[in-house]
Each structure stands twice: as C-alpha cells, then as structure tokens.
C-alpha cells in the first residue's frame, strides 16, 4: 500500500500555494494534516500529481474569537480546539462535536480545513458548519470568496472548491448566551465514523420557547444537511416531551440514509430520531 508517485512543494505564501495548485490541470491537491488524504493515496484512490503542503502558511493558523463569532484557521487541528478553553462558552457545540473526531494521534494532525475539503458525509466538522450556517473563506487564483456551508458540500467527498482554491478559514457565527445545544452521534466503536450524528441548537426566547432552531445531521446522506421539518417542529415551542416526540418522528421521516456494511437504512432512520431525542434532552437539561 505505497502511494503513487507525486511531486511535493512547500510554499512560503498563500499566493504561491494557489499558483502551484493552478499550475497542475486540476491534478494538484493541498495537504494540511493529511489524515484523510494520505489513506486515500495509500489505497491509490486519490492520485494527485502534486501535493502542496500548507504547513508554512502561518495565516491559516489560529482560533480567533470575537463578537462576530469563532474563526477557525484552516490549519487549526482538532487538538487545538480541544485545548482552547474559551470555546466551552464561545462555541460549546463545536467543542462537544470535536470530542468525537477520530483518535488521539489523528487529532494531533487532522485539521479543520482538511476535514472540510475532504467532505466525508459522517465527519463532525462539516456537520457543525452546516448546522451553524458557517461561512467558508477560500482563496483561489481569481481572489478570495466565501461560500455558505449549505452550498459548500455537494456530495460524498465532493465540495464547491475549485481545484486551485484553498480553504483559509471557517467562520462560525457568534454564539449568544441564550443558546441551547446538543450533539449526539453513535458509531460502532469509539472514534469510528458515526452511523448517524445530530448537531442542534435553538435560542430560548423570553417566554422559554425555542426559536431559531438549527438541526443538522451527519452520516445519513451523502453530505451533512439541516432538517427543516425538525426545526419547524421545535421553533416556537417549549422543548418538552411532546415537542421532543414530534421532533423524533419528523427527524426519522426526514432522512433517507443508505444501507451499508455497518448499518441498515431503517436502523439509521430510527437512530437519527433517537439521537435527535437525546440531543434535545441534553439541550433542554
């Protein structure tokens, strides 16, 4: 399982990196932690002709927290998120979700940008991004642009990124103090990709009712998505047993998951409902 041959470059600037990517007819790929890309290359499923190592690009590092929200540089590692105590209040949903990512060693190298660009349907970071209406800032040969998370993931391992574009930052909107959240996922073993996962939040209004509900799912389709039907059930309601029961039914009905070797479609539908139930319970607790 040796990788196919490729060229390697480690540019000093973002502009250089973009130029390198643009020069290889779509056959070049950026590499950050490489925790998703290198296994694909070991199986020769991915065969880029050039790898552009982003590790020297300091502007892609760092977690910036302001009144606008949380900005995660593309090279931020899972480890960095876990170690940043500010996130417990600045973005508790992110902090909870990232605890489920892979294993110890992978968390020391895997990055936010890498996970977003890889776009595994069961990955936590894309799920959080979609749930939270994140924006993805990218830089390409024609300049910079931002892409809404909802428009970013096009399918399994497929994104709206052009071959010359590099993710620079993922921007999560600010987390208000009255926001309640829950994150639940279930995998065969700790650290495995989830058979289903649910990320959700809602804002408590003055009357104790839920508003602005966002409910996202991973692992039950070809990319993460929000479940509008579940959000509609929750909005304007007290999150009590009756609301939760309706949300569970809506969630199971809203997803059309695949059958695969790890779980059946019917199981995944029911599981999604169960996870919505538990995520809402923990949010309301």
């Amino acid at each position: 399982m040796k990788m196919p041959a490729f060229e390697y470059a480690c540019p000093e600037t973002l502009a250089e990196a973009v130029a390198l990517l643009a020069s290889h007819d779509g056959e070049a790929k950026p590499i950050a932690g490489g925790q998703s890309l290198l296994p694909m290359m070991a199986f020769r499923v991915a065969q880029p002709t050039l790898l552009v190592d982003l590790r020297k690009l300091a502007e892609l590092r760092g977690i910036r927290i302001s009144s606008d929200g949380v900005r995660l540089g593309a090279l931020v590692r899972w480890r960095d998120i876990q170690d940043d105590a500010r996130l417990a209040t600045a973005h508790p949903l992110l902090a909870d979700a990232i605890k489920h990512v892979a294993h110890y060693q992978v968390r020391n190298r895997g990055t936010v940008g890498g996970s977003m660009a890889h776009a595994d349907p069961a990955s936590e970071m894309p799920g959080v991004a979609v749930t939270c209406d994140a924006e993805i800032a990218v830089r390409g040969k024609s300049g910079t642009r931002t892409i809404k998370a909802a428009d970013f993931f096009l399918g399994a391992l497929t994104t709206a990124l052009a071959p010359d574009e590099i993710i620079t930052e993922v921007r999560l909107p600010a987390w208000p103090a009255n926001r309640r959240h829950g994150f639940q996922e279930f995998a065969r073993r700790r650290g495995d990709f989830a058979m289903s996962g649910v990320a959700l939040f809602y804002d408590l209004d003055a009357g104790g009712k839920a508003a602005n509900a966002h409910v996202g799912v991973i692992g039950v389709g070809d990319h993460p998505k929000r479940l509008a039907a579940v959000e509609a059930v929750v909005n304007g309601q007290t999150v009590d047993e009756a609301t939760i029961a309706k949300a569970v039914a809506a969630a199971s009905a809203a997803v059309e998951p695949p059958d695969d070797i790890h779980a059946s479609a019917a199981y995944r539908k029911a599981l999604t409902g169960t996870l919505v139930e538990r995520a809402l319970r923990s949010a309301a607790a």
Binding site: R188, M195, H262, A263, S264, A266, Y267, A270, L271
Partner: peptide
C-alpha cells in the same frame, strides 16, 4: 450482534 441486528430484534 451488531447494533442494527439488535435493534431489528427489538423492533
């Protein structure tokens, strides 16, 4: 005894 199998038996 996979989660799917146990769940199916319960169902």
């Amino acid at each position: 005894l996979t989660p799917t199998y146990i769940w199916e038996l319960v169902q």
